[in-house]
Design a protein around this nucleic acid. Structure first.
Lengths: 214, 214
DNA sequence: ACAGACTTGTAGACAGTGTTTACTTACAGC
DNA sequence: GCTGTAAGTAAACACTGTCTACAAGTCTGT
């Protein structure tokens, strides 16, 4: 991912900003948000520490950018999970398909948290504010952010008649809460010790609760 | 809370370990886990940085101890919320009372997260493992940890016939997930902008989902 | 009562961090 | 081709966590 070889002959780097974000993402993957230290990031990009300040005002700004990259990957994982069931559309029926899509959102979220705990923590490390966030940076391949993917799935649920319209407002918040909370408990909470089967079981139980209780 | 005045005449401190934890707790309250920096902690205790190493092997060990203190306060907040409805026992009936107790657990959790976000984050900053944790350190006034308070409430729910026995196992995990996730979204997630009323509304909606979907 | 061992503090150093200020190098537009 | 400006370097500063060596109390056995 990061090319930290060949110490660069040119004075200019080419696309340092991108290189810094990539190196930061690597560090985040290995050790979470605290592992993305500015000097090491610049070191991996083959550049002086201060060079980072030409592209980010702060270490915080760098971490901020890295967190968007992490969110983007999360979105990609969710989309993957969703597209895996695209063939089942006819078999499940309209409402069943919409429900399966929502489950895929949750499953993708949880799967990513377990497969890439460092990136997952980084995605939510700094205070996120959906209102003024640079949406496109945190979007996945299809241009939707994790939050938007969830919203879309819930909208589809309403369209399919599987969720009453009057229960739609605010539904993304409680659904997200449940899934996000479980992800945290699993990656560094009391549920860390669970093996893959147990995790799947608890995850299934949780998604069931969301479906029933939303 | 921390007495950082009167520069101490005696060579020995008296109860430095306690003083360090208290100072660390103050810092955690103000700025979360990252704000509890070892040197500042010792500074507030009126002592040399290295003195901390007589009582904690690491900065991590200190933070660990502080996080237990934070969990203990969380437990206290939950107990407060629970005891606030003790008088309603007769009026609500057995099952209703058990349900109210469970809601109080969640409400106390969410209330604490909003009232003391720094402490709340600190409580779950380091990897918690309920198995080998020093239980008593993270317990509240009545000797129960936050997790135990939740378990107790769920047990009571079963006893009162408000929750089928076969749905009891694992229920604490999904319930905790939901509440924990909302807490995170509210204190530094996309729901940060909500005012008190909106928060209460979302919290109520979430607890409703837990009751229905558990 | 007193000598030694043990505990709990201090002193000073070191590597590593984020960030500032001043300087240099390469490119781009007239 | 000169010049302004963007994008890098160099050297410093104030921090941090932690290590090693030393000093000051306290405890215990005789």
């Amino acid at each position: 991912m990061t090319e930290q070889s060949s110490p660069r002959t040119t004075y200019r780097h080419g696309d340092l900003r991108r290189a810094l974000i990539d190196a930061g993402t690597d560090l985040a993957r290995e050790g979470g948000p605290d592992a993305v230290v500015l000097r090491e990031v610049t070191r991996r990009a083959g550049v002086t520490p201060n060079a980072a300040y030409r592209h980010f005002t702060d270490k915080g700004a760098l971490l901020w950018a890295v967190s968007f990259a992490a969110q983007s990957r999360l979105a990609a994982a969710m989309e993957d999970e969703q597209s895996a069931i695209d063939d089942d559309g006819a078999r499940l029926g309209r409402a069943g398909f919409a429900r399966a899509k929502l489950r895929a959102v949750g499953a993708g979220y949880l799967g990513f948290a377990q497969a890439e705990p460092g990136l997952f923590r980084t995605a939510f490390a700094n205070h996120i504010d959906l209102r003024d966030a640079a949406i496109e940076d945190s979007a996945g391949p299809h241009g939707r952010t994790p939050f938007q993917l969830l919203s879309d799935a819930l909208d589809a649920l309403v369209d399919a008649g599987a969720l009453p319209v009057d229960r739609r407002p605010g539904a993304e918040f409680v659904a997200w809460s449940a899934v996000h909370g479980l992800a945290m408990l699993v990656i560094d909470g009391p549920l860390r010790g669970l093996d893959a089967d147990q995790r799947l079981s608890v995850a299934g139980r949780l998604l069931e609760m969301v479906e029933k209780g939303i």
